[in-house]
Design a binder for these strands. Structure first.
Length: 347
DNA sequence: AACCAAGTCAACCGCTTACTA
DNA sequence: TTAGTAAGCGGTTGACTTGGT
């Protein structure tokens, strides 16, 4: 199968479209429909290749195109779908009316991907980046250093606490590595498919650590939001029960990380986390409420099983770029906020 | 004001897939 | 079944914009 000749044809214009060209294309399609894209330029009187016309129409001139900033809901949807579908931009675009695959792809590459990286997440796998852990010993060393000195201000104390939480996560990571423990990631559909939905203590550790860092104040979880997450919906889940048992979100909730790691963790610290809803910034664009696949966000999406996930062997793009999503699991979205200023402060 | 670096996004390139003769 | 073609898709490019110095 040969590649179709297109814009290499002599004399065809390339580059930005002029308003006049746009008008010609719009007028023609209004009257005749696009029909054969290859034939369209000649019929419409455009000195462009059909491919260029199609792209201009689908990405810019189509009347149902929605332009402007992506809403938080759209961001959330993109993040969620990308965790499932990977770089299947057109598939993602079908769930965002008025948005083109190109626009979503650009938005991902220029905003969301960078944000994930900044948060310490691998944008392809949606998992915490392992190289993050390489920095943890440094964080821990700093914390140990500071612990031998009077803690004079709140900010320093907070950093130490953050580092202690990092220890917890680091231990969890080591534990998982040594046991080759790789639990299935929770997905909106995995609950209904009776997969293991037990929350990974490392996730919680990461969540709390980074939420802590982000807020630069007492770490907190928004209980009412968390309760809406399918991630926490398993009633038999000890973490879920822990949360459910403490619905009064104004009270102090001991968060003891009740896991197989308890012994090790208890040697380090045992934190009392204040679950104060007020402290969970609702305006945060990557608030966990926005990120975790919520019943609300899922409600306008088809069930996972209905989403067409192309795993074509011949699809080189999916082979090379979709490795995370193709592992048969979706990702989870604990909030990680390793903001640069924090990392700079530590380093 | 001028320069530069980083960010943004429209458009292109090249590959795959679907369709058809 | 095979080969040619059209369309779709994802990655990449490069022009333009913005912000900092």
């Amino acid at each position: 199968m040969g590649r179709s000749p297109c814009c290499d044809e002599n004399g065809l214009k390339k580059g930005p479209w002029t308003p006049e060209e746009d008008q010609i294309l719009v007028d023609y399609i209004d009257k005749h429909g696009h029909g054969s894209w290859r034939a369209l330029p000649k019929l419409a009187g455009l000195n462009r290749c059909g491919k260029s016309c199609r792209l201009r129409w689908t990405n810019y001139l189509r009347p149902d195109i929605k332009r402007g900033k992506f809403s938080e809901e759209e961001e959330q949807t993109i993040l969620h779908l990308h965790s499932i579908l990977g770089n299947k931009w057109s598939a993602i675009a079908t769930h965002l009316p008025g948005r083109t695959d190109n626009e979503i792809k650009n938005f991902w590459n220029t905003h969301l991907k960078k944000r994930l990286i900044q948060m310490g997440y691998d944008p392809m796998t949606h998992r915490p980046r392992t190289d993050l852990f390489a920095n943890l010993p440094n964080i821990i060393a700093l914390a140990n250093l500071l612990q031998h000195h009077p803690l004079e201000d709140h900010a320093v104390r907070l950093q130490v606490e953050a580092a202690q939480l990092a220890k917890i996560q680091y231990l969890q990571f080591l534990f998982q590595s040594s046991n080759n423990y790789n639990p299935p990631l929770p997905t909106p559909s995995s609950n209904t498919q009776h997969h293991n939905t037990n929350i990974n203590i490392g996730d919680l550790g990461a969540f709390n650590l980074t939420n802590f860092v982000k807020e630069n104040s007492t770490p907190c979880l928004n209980l009412s939001n968390l309760e809406n997450q399918t991630l926490f919906s398993n009633e038999n889940n000890s973490c879920s029960q822990l949360l459910h048992n403490n619905q009064d979100n104004t009270q102090q909730v001991p968060f003891n990380f009740q896991t197989h790691l308890n012994n090790s963790i208890n040697e380090i610290s045992c934190h009392n986390f204040n679950f104060d809803q007020k402290n969970n910034s609702p305006s945060s664009p990557l608030n966990i409420t926005n990120i975790l696949p919520s019943p609300h966000s899922s409600s306008h999406l088809p069930p996972l099983a209905e989403i067409s996930i192309s795993n074509n062997q011949g699809d080189s793009s999916s082979n090379s770029t979709n490795n995370g999503a193709d592992q048969g699991s979706s990702s989870y979205w604990p909030e990680l906020f390793f903001e640069e200023h924090f990392m700079h402060d530590i380093s």
